[in-house]
Design a protein around this nucleic acid. Structure first.
Lengths: 336, 336
DNA sequence: CTGAAAGCGCTTACAG
DNA sequence: CTGAAAGCGCTTACAG
């Protein structure tokens, strides 16, 4: 990588101007076939690569798409990245990753937004909660944005109906005869709470209300979307309010909950029924009843929407809702 | 984000030159406190942000670190990303992600390297196999590089001893009395095979050899590092050579294998013992015996090494080997 | 079809 | 301590 050849070198050697080299190499019109051929050959010989910063500075486009998400080490976000990646790689676009977990990181993200908007051609924002004002600012810019898991109205978004999905999952437990149905969700009281966790929480309350059952707040626990968090939350539920079933906002937490049940010498589903959310491959392997959502397809759609905007699409924001389904497996059983 | 204020605007308004603004804002010396204060205030008022492309073009540094890895949607690589992220965010550095799975993507990666090396200040390469010539080319450039999971000699690297870890895992099975010990690894015959999978495979063979047991090739299966792959591989082993124990090169595959055993109406560990690799949280929850490795710490170290080089460290390549340990849990048992 | 030139928005010697 | 100016390597009207 003795980084060398500039456009100037190519131009000199080809006996043309840098303008012509630029046009020839980018496939722009108004270049004679012969010239284009010669320039291309010489560029190849010299192993010339345009300096991306120079291109971007001059052209105003960057060839990279940004993606902002709360964390990296979870099945869900890994698949989000994979989904985005598939569509970016088709267009040879690069991916600029920014993690926005917690208050401090969010502030940095927000204050870096003006810079970021010069570095990327578009932005996919996943589950990042921000004050309304910031969304407004973002909308004021001209950066194409699509959101996943949040619906801000001003941008393209792809979503699942968390409320409905959760309601359906809990309805399943109700049909099986359960009445004391716990919930394990995100970090309760966190200012940067994830919207989806909150909606799933509310979905459970609604399902209970559908049958005229009053919610018991003691049955709601924070599980931080981790296996360990799920296990600890479940241990507390078992030690205290003792639900007969628990709905978890992620498979990870559900798996932790299963562990806690086993640790307590109890059995799933004989003593406690458990439902997860996501349907990652491990869920199927464990026979976990869970809500299936097509994560990487969702992320891919969002990325495609951003690219459409980058390509010049001018239309009102599109809101795409993707279906989920309950996969009933072996961790849920009737109470009798 | 009505992207506006340039360094020129700030200079004009502050009544100084752009050079002074540049110095003042970057904390460079030779700026009077009064001037610096005034410039900073005005920059803030104007919400001025340096255009990163201009900075990079002029300064030759990019403020971003690249990371190349084979895939995104696995526990392992998610944690790699998280580990890198922690150290980058301390230095306000950005992360440029490139996925290099499969032959085609690798070719694109390689041909894009000259460009990439202008876009990033350093590069972390994880488990990406490349022809020797390419490593040599890379080394010829002046881009700081650290590798994870591969040892090229010319670059800083952080590694675990896969051979030893695998050997230890299989030795554990041998001690329990197992003799027909299967292996489920990566994609056999893939040209872009992962080095780690290959080493783990060889570790098993060595452990067998230690006891004078000849390897039975029929006991080796491809599992593609996925739950489904592990399940299918195990199903074939059960249908054919019927090992009494299986060592899997990842927890995901081990979990798939456990499912296959259950599907066959058999029990773990009574009929078949299973060992995984990674020790992701789900492994503990399932009681999976597995090889523990500190993934995000490994990745964080590699990132830190790159940053040291970016910072000017000039020293021979550092090779850091990180310890693993076998976590014996409930999926392995004695044959009697 | 092609070129000369301005311009993108910074940084960095070089003077002073 | 500060400024004028060149330069980073491209792209893009504008002429021709």
């Amino acid at each position: 990588m003795p980084d060398v050849a500039t456009i100037e070198d190519v131009a000199t050697r080809a006996g043309v101007s840098v303008a012509t080299v630029s046009r020839a190499l980018r496939g722009l019109p108004h270049v004679s076939p012969a010239t284009r051929e010669r320039v291309s050959r010489i560029a190849a010989e010299l192993d010339y690569r345009p300096n991306p910063h120079a291109s971007r500075l001059a052209a105003g486009r960057s060839g990279t798409i940004g993606i902002a998400l709360p964390l990296l080490n979870s099945w869900f976000y890994g698949n989000v990245l994979a989904g985005v990646e598939t569509v970016l790689s088709d267009d040879q676009l690069d991916m600029h990753l920014v993690t926005v977990g917690g208050r401090e990181a969010m502030e940095r993200f927000v204050s870096g937004l003006p810079s970021l908007s010069k570095q990327v051609d578009g932005l996919v924002i996943v589950d990042v909660f921000m004050p309304d004002q910031l969304w407004e600012d973002l909308a004021g810019g001209n950066l194409p944005v699509a959101t996943v898991g949040i619906d801000v109205g001003r941008f393209d978004s792809v979503l699942i109906d968390n409320l409905k999905a959760a309601r359906g999952a809990v309805a399943h437990l109700l049909e099986l005869g359960h009445r004391r149905i716990g919930f394990i969700g995100g970090a309760i009281g966190e200012s940067v709470e994830m919207e989806s966790a909150e909606e799933r929480r509310r979905g459970r309350v609604m399902a209970l209300a559908d049958l005229g059952i009053d919610d018991d707040n003691d049955l709601q626990m924070a599980g931080n979307f981790s296996v360990d968090g799920g296990r600890e939350a479940m241990a507390q539920l078992l030690a205290g309010p003792q639900p007969t079933a628990v709905f978890c906002a992620s498979d990870e937490m559900a798996i932790g909950a299963m562990q806690a049940v086993a640790d307590a010498g109890l059995s799933v589903p004989d003593d406690v029924s458990i439902v997860g959310f996501d349907d990652q491959p491990v869920a199927a392997a464990l026979g976990l009843t869970t809500v299936h959502q097509p994560v990487s397809a969702i992320a891919a759609r969002a990325a495609a929407m951003v690219l459409d905007r980058v390509g010049g699409l001018d239309a009102p924001p599109i809101r795409l809702e993707v279906a989920t389904r309950l996969e009933v497996r072996r961790t849920t059983a009737s109470t009798i």
